[in-house]
């Protein structure tokens, strides 16, 4: 995949994918959160490399502030609070297998879908799709609510990657809308988890199975 003129970016993109795969494999919550922060840091570097100039630095700063520092801290606090830092059944053991399969399939399939883009965009788009899918796979394998939250952020990272690489920044209104929406989603999830806590519902995803059929 890596072609000469995308050398550095290609390497960074591959690093993103590797970190996503790592997130599928690691167990204890704190390790996951650490990897998440590392992934965000790579994303910040990509922002600087892909969009040279002030815009790139601003984007990198925002990412550093929110994704490298803010969100991991919040997640860590939640993990402490819910006592799932060292949870044994954090995610399903087969996750890495699914991840590898996804990487294989997408690498084979993607050239068709990126034909016609310039090589740099093609690589970063492929990476974004991969990170999205790996995040989704992580949500599928994550057995604790917190694990799912971590992987939701991975999906978000994939989207960021695409947004940074392809467009050099979305229109401000759209960015704003997306950010407000994200905030509201977090708010709603917090409200719901308050209810979950109040009702003493399990924090284990598989046990939320009252509704079926």
């Amino acid at each position: 995949m890596t072609v000469p003129e995308t050398g550095l970016l290609g390497g960074l993109a591959d690093l993103l994918v590797v970190l996503s795969l790592g997130l599928l494999v690691v167990r204890p919550a704190l390790w996951s959160i650490g990897l998440l922060a590392a992934q965000a840091a790579v994303l910040a570097v990509i922002a600087v490399v892909a969009a040279p100039g002030a815009g790139g630095w601003v984007a990198a700063g925002v990412i550093l502030l929110t994704k490298v520092v803010g969100i991991p801290l919040v997640l860590q606090w939640v993990a402490r609070r819910t006592g799932s830092e060292n949870a044994v059944d954090w995610s399903a053991p087969w996750a890495w297998l699914v991840g590898a399969g996804i990487v294989l399939v997408v690498r084979l399939a993607l050239p068709t879908f990126t034909a016609g883009l310039n090589p740099q965009h093609a690589v970063l788009l492929g990476t974004a799709v991969l990170v999205l899918l790996l995040g989704l796979a992580g949500m599928v394998s994550g057995k604790l609510l917190l694990a799912q939250a971590v992987h939701l952020v991975v999906i978000e990272n994939g989207l960021y990657c695409a947004g940074l690489a392809l467009t050099g920044g979305l229109p401000a209104a759209l960015d704003l809308g997306a950010a407000v929406d994200l905030l509201l989603v977090i708010f709603v999830l917090a409200w719901l988890s308050h209810h979950v806590h109040r009702l003493q519902l399990p924090l284990h995803v598989d046990e939320l199975r009252r509704l079926r059929g």
Partner: peptide, 11 residues
């Protein structure tokens, strides 16, 4: 009833 299964459908 399993949320993970449902996410799996999407994946």
């Amino acid at each position: 009833g399993s949320l993970r299964l449902y996410l799996g459908y999407i994946l």
